[in-house]
């Protein structure tokens, strides 16, 4: 099996689906000739032509609005928003238009569209390039939100997202684009949306994470196991809307202690939703308060200090310590 990094895995998913489904097209800024600012769509315009891989004018709201119109007419647009910080430009089209179409028309019109966007910190970008904004869309019924953290999942989840009958926001953690390679099948396969992955099994504590924060959290949990003993169960949600409630409840029932690690700001973040879910569904299993390690409640800071803002191993260790010593 070939080794791929996340950029290659996403590119492979796009290519395979373009080959399989003539109704799919890719639209966005710089996605064609240049192959995207991160080369995610590299080579696709050369292979499929500029009718199917389209460099659009610079206007995110129009890009997503166009995807709505295209999808309603039976096509499968995969739109790119160059960085997630620019998704605010599209909020009306995403939230008021795309997310509600099936609901408003009572199922007559549905929108099989995907919006892809890179996000996440740690790569010294200028302002508004690093923000984790999944919370905005988890709060928007009608949109699914997918956040892979590995090349294998990235490819399988993207193929599911493109084939899904509803709008999907697919978020790509920039720092993980080329961070590591793993075995990824050349051909097609899918990873089901809404299903979490148990990255590591354990009995003492459940660490719930996703997207850009997942590798940091997973590595911290592994190091903790090696140094302190004890066992931490790590759950990578992979899809934050819909959320895999069953996987969360099953694990918490076993461990009784919950740590949530995400990169987005804390207040109103998806971590709060996970915590609420745990207290609704398995409160009596809890042996300690639910803790969160997240970004702070400020706008994403200038890159000179971003490492202090991002969840890191020390903060995760402290929280685990607190949870495990709680009596």
């Amino acid at each position: 099996m070939p080794l791929m990094n996340m950029v290659e895995a996403i590119n492979s998913a796009l290519r395979l689906e373009m080959e399989r489904d003539p109704s799919m097209l890719i639209i966005g800024e710089d996605v064609g000739r240049a192959g995207g600012v991160f080369r995610v769509t590299d080579g696709l315009q050369a292979q499929f032509g500029n009718r199917r891989v389209v460099d659009t004018p610079l206007a995110e709201s129009a890009i997503v609005g166009a995807a709505v119109g295209l999808a309603a007419r039976g096509l499968r647009p995969v739109a790119e928003v160059q960085f997630l910080g620019f998704i605010y430009e599209t909020m009306d089209q995403m939230a008021s238009q795309a997310a509600r179409m099936r609901f408003r028309t009572a199922g007559r019109i549905h929108l099989p569209m995907v919006v892809r966007s890179p996000y996440g910190g740690g790569v010294r970008t200028p302002e508004l390039h690093s923000d984790s904004l999944e919370g905005l869309f988890v709060h928007t019924p009608g949109i699914k939100v997918v956040m892979p953290s590995s090349p294998y999942d990235a490819k399988g989840l993207l193929l599911s997202a493109i084939r899904d009958p509803d709008p999907v926001l697919y978020l790509e953690p920039m720092r993980l684009y080329r961070a590591f390679k793993e075995e990824v099948p050349d051909g097609e396969y899918t990873v089901e949306l809404g299903k979490a992955k148990v990255v590591a099994e354990g009995d003492d504590l459940t660490l719930i994470t996703w997207g850009a924060a997942a590798p940091v959290a997973t590595a911290a949990a592994a190091e903790w196991r090696d140094k302190q003993g004890g066992s931490v169960e790590v759950i990578d949600l992979r899809t934050v809307a819909p959320m895999d409630e069953e996987a969360i409840v099953r694990s918490v029932a076993k461990t009784g202690r919950v740590l949530i690690v995400h990169e987005a700001v804390k207040s109103g973040g998806v971590g709060a939703e996970v915590a609420a879910l745990v207290s609704e569904k398995c409160m009596l299993s809890l042996l300690a308060p639910i803790l969160r390690v997240t970004g702070y409640d400020t706008p994403y800071p200038a890159f000179a200090v971003e490492e202090d803002w991002l969840p890191n191993k020390q903060r995760i260790f402290k929280a685990m310590q607190e949870l495990l010593s709680y009596r």
Binding site: R124, H129, P301, A304
Partner: peptide, 23 residues
């Protein structure tokens, strides 16, 4: 461009907004 915490704070009396990232 150094990503300084106060890199977008222009001196008092300069009648200009800082760098705009959003096109």
């Amino acid at each position: 461009t150094m990503g300084h915490v106060f890199g977008a704070r222009l001196p008092e009396g300069v009648h200009a907004f800082p760098v705009q990232i959003i096109i």
